[in-house]
Computed example of a mutant assay.
Amino acid sequence: MPPKLARRRNAVLRPRDAADVYAHPRPELARLARRGALRQVAHGYYVVVPQRRLADPRWRPELHATALGIAVTDYGIDDAALMGTSAARHHGALPRAVAVAVVAIPRQRAALRLDIGQVTFVKRKVGRLDVERYEHDLVTGWVTTVEQTLLDVADRPALGGLTEDSAREVVRALALRADWGRVAELAREQRRPRAHRTALELSEQDPDARPR
């Protein structure tokens, strides 16, 4: 593995990202994948295998980090963020593993099937979302905060493959950690009063007991 590729902070790689290393990057990346230095997760997307896992053919990249890595690779770090079920998983509100990752990006895009799950893209302006830093071995980027995630899941509970019952569990888990004053502020800024009401209802919170 060329050092320049091995040291990338975003471990998700496309052939064009190796154009300054190889004259013909596509066959070279395919060769590295056959040798176990890369893992191809979808057509045109590879993940750099960590050095400590090079001899492990069972290694699989984490779905949500890989999804964010794809979005960062395609749109840039400031125009991509984990949201919905992926953010809920990050915040510990979704203990069960799910096979769908949800990522906010600046334009419409069809879902992408990976060999480790599915990536669902949502058109959102990340600069208008409440986000915090996301750090993973595979990628550095953004993830929505507890409060933003609470609103997003309440607004679109089925996004990311949640059932009605599991969505309620996620909202209740997030509600225990949320600053409800910030939730109300975000709901006003983003003009999402219905999502705010749904969050209160699903989490069985008393709206009169929360900051206005």
Rank of each mutant, 00 (worst) to 15 (best):
119 V>F: 05
116 I>N: 03
97 A>M: 15
178 A>T: 05
173 A>V: 00
20 D>G: 08
6 A>H: 10
45 Y>V: 01
96 R>Q: 15
50 P>A: 01
172 R>E: 13
92 G>W: 11
100 V>C: 14
159 L>T: 08
67 A>T: 03
103 V>N: 08
112 L>T: 15
129 L>K: 07
183 V>M: 00
203 S>A: 13
140 T>D: 11
38 L>V: 09
88 A>M: 05
46 Y>E: 03
103 V>W: 12
71 A>C: 03
144 T>V: 04
69 G>V: 00
204 E>G: 12
163 T>L: 02
149 T>N: 05
90 H>K: 06
87 A>I: 11
43 H>D: 09
135 E>C: 13
78 D>V: 06
111 A>N: 15
190 Q>M: 06
88 A>H: 06
172 R>L: 01
112 L>E: 03
74 D>A: 02
16 R>V: 12
185 E>T: 02
35 R>F: 10
191 R>V: 05
11 A>M: 14
147 E>G: 01
75 Y>C: 03
177 R>A: 06
195 A>G: 09
107 R>P: 07
116 I>G: 10
65 A>T: 02
2 P>W: 09
94 L>E: 13
171 V>Y: 01
142 W>E: 15
30 A>M: 05
7 R>N: 15
59 W>E: 01
176 L>P: 00
75 Y>P: 03
192 R>T: 14
135 E>K: 08
183 V>F: 02
115 D>M: 08
71 A>S: 03
42 A>T: 05
30 A>Q: 04
15 P>W: 07
4 K>T: 15
97 A>D: 15
205 Q>T: 06
70 I>S: 02
49 V>Y: 04
127 G>T: 10
98 V>T: 15
86 S>R: 07
189 E>T: 13
101 A>H: 10
48 V>N: 03
138 L>S: 05
65 A>D: 06
176 L>I: 00
139 V>C: 10
110 A>S: 14
206 D>G: 06
85 T>H: 08
53 R>G: 02
175 A>W: 00
69 G>P: 00
135 E>S: 13
23 A>L: 10
201 E>Q: 15
151 L>R: 08
163 T>V: 01
57 P>W: 02
114 L>Q: 10
146 V>A: 12
63 L>E: 01
137 D>E: 13
6 A>Q: 13
193 P>C: 04
92 G>F: 11
129 L>P: 09
5 L>F: 11
14 R>C: 09
91 H>C: 15
107 R>A: 14
40 Q>M: 09
106 P>I: 13
171 V>S: 00
207 P>T: 11
202 L>Q: 11
123 K>F: 07
186 L>Y: 02
159 L>S: 10
177 R>H: 00
191 R>F: 08
31 R>D: 09
